[in-house]
Design a protein around this nucleic acid. Sequence first.
DNA 1: TAGATTGTTAATCGATTAACAATC
DNA 2: TAGATTGTTAATCGATTAACAATC
Lengths: 224, 224
Amino acid sequence: MPNEQENGLLYFPKATLDRLKLYQMVLAELPDKENISSDEIAERLKITPEQVRKDISYIKYNGKPKVGYHIKTLLEELNRLFGTTNKNNVILAGVGHLGAAIANYPGFSAYGMEIVALFDSDPQKQGTFVRDLTVLPIKDLRRIIKRFKVEIGIICVPKESAQSLAEQMVACGIRAIWNFAPIILRVPDDIVVEDENISISLLGLKHKLEQRRQERQIVKNTPS
Amino acid sequence: MPNEQENGLLYFPKATLDRLKLYQMVLAELPDKENISSDEIAERLKITPEQVRKDISYIKYNGKPKVGYHIKTLLEELNRLFGTTNKNNVILAGVGHLGAAIANYPGFSAYGMEIVALFDSDPQKQGTFVRDLTVLPIKDLRRIIKRFKVEIGIICVPKESAQSLAEQMVACGIRAIWNFAPIILRVPDDIVVEDENISISLLGLKHKLEQRRQERQIVKNTPS
DNA sequence: TAGATTGTTAATCGATTAACAATC
DNA sequence: TAGATTGTTAATCGATTAACAATC
């Protein structure tokens, strides 16, 4: 293993790790194909096949010359790496449009995520059902987290209340936060935070369009 | 300007660009502070102040020694860079839970995005209202895109229909796609695609948790 | 066997960090 | 002025690419 550290853990360059997520997605999308070549993965993601091979060389799996990668096996290895088969009990707070959408997201169980409770500070929403779950008041947070050994909290509240909610979750024993509110949360270092920040994504979209616009202007102003 | 290219466009390292988005967010969050130091920005994002200064040095804005960066001015410069003040007419297809949530997202107008029409292939949904907009059938796509000079299409349909929808949007003249479906779209090179992929984000979350788990195991198995 | 495709090593390129100069 | 903070240059580090060896 070329990338093993002293403690036995594997090291992955951050960029490699991000691409491995994309490979997982590409492979999971594929119908019932047996094998796939680095060329085909690369083509779908608009990167080079060398890059794909280099990245895959970091995990303990080997493709076959002339055949490519065995999709099922490689996918299993990627899933082991990401820990997708581990089970987690999850809570979600903020049952607005976005919260309801996330709560109804069908893909969760494939990743071992089970939502065990929903929370909202709005008394009007408390007691109502979303899917098969009653919306609970925030004061029940601690009880539920203890009872279901909840590790992950999903934050879908407006950005004004996100920081305070995060602190309450942490105080109640949550280990990881999946944050959909468009702010930077401040939490202790040992708490895992994954941001799904629509505003950041929007900045990326706007910037790409702005770049295209500027490129067009240059073409227009360049005498041919 | 140290990073100017021959064509006059500025070049930014990709990593720098991603962090500039975070700076935009941090500054936009701030109450009515006048100035902010590289130290404070760095502290909030858990990076180094040197990195912050280096990144900001790429844009044509200068901070003041002993004072820091003037928030309002820097924010304006970042917004110019990202093109957030440009106006775009936008359509959204797929008015399920997620689509409705996106359509109701309050932050769009601040980024110059105006949703001018909603689409869904489900006849049951066609004719119903979401916000102040009627849901239209897909066959109206071309007409609306032409009429409103729509540049951006938001895809919120299930992943099975996302590729075909993307192709229709492209055929009707869309220049950019904001894709919320968890698949890799295949579109021509001149089409801008920004993915907001919840599954990828979920992989990131699971992986960070898996890493923590492994680290804990090592600590446990290391004789002290 | 020849050919196709993977895997690895070395070279290049790019990004981060460190050191320090500039300046308010 | 002294001190704090920004800005820049050079050194280091890390990631990508190119070349080619390995192998089915």
